[in-house]
């Protein structure tokens, strides 16, 4: 069962309340999105660790209900 944008946003914000999140639906099928996430929680973390934080926020949906999420993550400009 595909996910909708608001669900993705809600899950990310639940885990990363300070996050600035922008999501784009790439294919209109609820399965392929791109997301840019900016959060203080990423500071000092590798890209892999940053993306893993987002995947954790998605509570197991990544790779299942959500087939593709092209991610761009960063900490806010200091």
């Amino acid at each position: 069962m595909p996910m909708d944008e608001n669900e993705i946003l809600k899950l990310i914000k639940k885990k990363l309340p300070d996050a600035d999140v922008s999501i784009r639906d790439l294919a209109g099928d609820g399965d392929h999105y791109s997301a840019t996430v900016v959060s203080e929680a990423f500071r000092g973390k590798t890209r892999v660790q940053q993306h893993q934080l987002v995947y954790e926020a998605l509570e197991g949906n990544m790779g299942g209900a959500l087939h593709a999420l092209a991610l761009q993550t960063s900490a806010p400009e200091s």
Binding site: R47, V48, H51, A70, L71, Q72
Partner: peptide, 8 residues
């Protein structure tokens, strides 16, 4: 060492 997936 795991480097990343497609995006990374």
């Amino acid at each position: 060492e795991f480097v990343g997936g497609c995006d990374i």
